[in-house]
């Protein structure tokens, strides 16, 4: 088991970073979520951006997209960037 973990060190480090990022999002949601009546907050945008950074790492490293074809890598990267941008803009415009 230790050998498997050693050979997958990068993935284990990414997993730990994803857990820390989840806890950071939680903290931001509580402390930077704004007062009642606030629509959009900087904390809200930060949470969305952190979310899509996490999505990118899960896709690239856990789903092995980083070793896949240029076509799949491009589609996935475009999905992450466009959806993150669209949701942030919608969040700011509709709040």
């Amino acid at each position: 088991m230790q050998q498997i973990v050693r050979n997958s060190r990068a993935s284990v480090v990414i997993w730990a970073a994803l857990v820390v990022a989840t806890l950071a999002s939680w903290w931001l949601g509580i402390h930077e979520g704004g007062a009642p009546g606030d629509g959009a907050t900087v904390g809200g945008v930060a949470v969305l951006v952190i979310t899509f950074v996490k999505v990118w790492f899960v896709g690239r490293h856990f789903m092995d997209i980083r070793e896949s074809t240029l076509l799949l890598r491009t589609i996935f990267d475009a999905y992450v960037v466009l959806l993150c941008t669209a949701l942030c803009v919608l969040y700011l415009v509709t709040s």
């Binding site: 989840t22 999002s25 949601g29 809200g44 949470v47 979310t51 899509f52 996490k54 999505v55 896709g59």
Partner: peptide, 14 residues
């Protein structure tokens, strides 16, 4: 996992 990573902040945080 990936889909939940977005659902969680949408419903629980923002």
């Amino acid at each position: 996992d990936l889909l939940w990573l977005v659902l969680f902040p949408l419903f629980y945080l923002v």
